[in-house]
Design a protein around this nucleic acid. Structure first.
Lengths: 239, 239
DNA sequence: CGTTACGTTGATAGGAATCAATGAGGGTGG
DNA sequence: CCACCCTCATTGATTCCTATCAACGTAACG
């Protein structure tokens, strides 16, 4: 493909080599040659709007996905009326590892806002870049470690759990080069409660308390500005 | 190596092809040829006694391990005096995935009883059986899904959490062909509390309640016999 | 036979869930 | 364009569960 053609094409679908995610996505640690081959396994076109489902729990495993922009939530069906929220994915994060073990997705993924997503065909990836699996394994290991943190957080008080969520989101935005002191939550108080294992009322009280104490400001019910990052960090470190 | 020599050697160290773990370990899904090559990456000799440490948190990642017999606990240092218990491993389970992401183990592993452990050299494995990584990735994915369950459990009442632990252990013993209605806990009330995020007193009360209601019998403070498996399952399913 | 760590049991206190009522915002249809 | 509805957020009052504090029992160990 000529350089000109490549540039024209770029306007429609960004190739993995040019993707803004850069090292955040799979290519990290791969040779340029492999990155080019990565394109053959990736389709760059998925667009979701708020409420759209990327995949459903129990559906057969099909692909991994990379979130390019937007945000989605991880939900799991439970016995009650409402689904449990297990977490959110932010831009630059990989989605779908839950489906690898049993060839069935173990949770559903639902867009919280308009989101762009790359689809990554695992079988094709295996053919093109066998050594990618070590990379994926590292990523899976990281996820395992993170869920360790989730468990730790769930042992602390309501306010600390809320602060932990805010700091976690802030940190993940920062790592990916986004504004990290002001962002949308998109989750309702009730969904945050489900995620943190708190009642919606307790989440509300906790957030308002942080607001009264000037740690954060609420632009909107679901948009927060962090005024005192260190202050928040202190809140969770002190016993 | 001659067949005779192999048989003699077998008395000392069982090869992967003959190991009692069978499909529970990595070989599941591998060709016989690959299983033989697996031996080259595995040392079959580690023996731990109660209290011995397999590896320490923060230590550089060295190997994966397969637990052949016995049981170990996963512990993570926290700010307080005592370590947090994050889980236990039972025979047939793979240990060490927490170290892959950062090349440092994220938790420590301590034997709860006399335990036999195989050491699996990941680099050597990669050379001998590159396709093993897909297998390992599946395993890691499974672990991610399980930690999902852990989070779900942590949302229920004290008694349900205790029942969930008992059923989880029972299930894992059953899957691996062990007695699953009677087993040692090895964990103290306090360690179970750490694992379930409950105080030792609450754990004690919960267990005694299950005993009074005839769901379980205590042979010993730390040895339980399950009398009514379905009854226990009902306890956690009813809201 | 004391010592020590662990387990059990009871009493109390505290934090979060629940119940209840009100307020606020967003969308729809008249 | 406004009134209505519906969902979500907030706030207060109360209840319930579990942590904590305290005391005692028990088993293993030197």
């Amino acid at each position: 493909m000529s350089s000109l053609a490549k540039n024209l094409f770029r306007n429609l679908t960004v190739s993995c080599g040019d993707c803004s995610l850069g090292d955040l996505c799979i290519p990290h640690g791969l040779a340029q040659q492999d990155i080019d081959r990565l394109d053959d396994s990736v389709s760059h076109t998925k667009l979701l709007h708020a409420g759209d489902i990327l995949y459903q729990q129990e559906a057969p495993f099909k692909s991994l996905y990379a979130l390019k922009s937007g945000s989605v939530k991880i939900i799991v069906r439970n016995n009650d009326a409402n689904d449990d929220v297990m977490g959110v994915y932010l831009p630059g994060e990989l989605i779908g590892f839950d489906g690898i073990a049993t060839d069935k997705y173990q949770c559903s993924i639902q867009a919280l806002e308009t989101s762009n997503i790359c689809e990554i065909d695992l079988d094709s990836l295996q053919e093109n870049i066998p050594q990618i699996f070590k990379q994926l394994l590292k990523h899976a290991s990281k996820t395992i470690n993170q869920s360790c943190d989730v468990v730790s957080v769930s042992k602390s008080s309501a306010e600390k759990r809320i602060v932990s969520l805010l700091l976690d989101l802030s940190d993940r935005y920062r790592q990916r080069g986004y504004f990290y002191t002001e962002f949308n939550l998109y989750l309702s108080r009730s969904e945050m409660g489900s995620l943190l294992n708190l009642s919606p009322e307790t989440v509300s009280r906790g957030i308002r308390k942080l607001e009264r104490e000037k740690f954060i400001s609420l632009q909107n019910k679901r948009r927060v500005k962090i005024n005192d990052l260190d202050g928040l960090r202190n809140l969770i470190s002190t016993s």
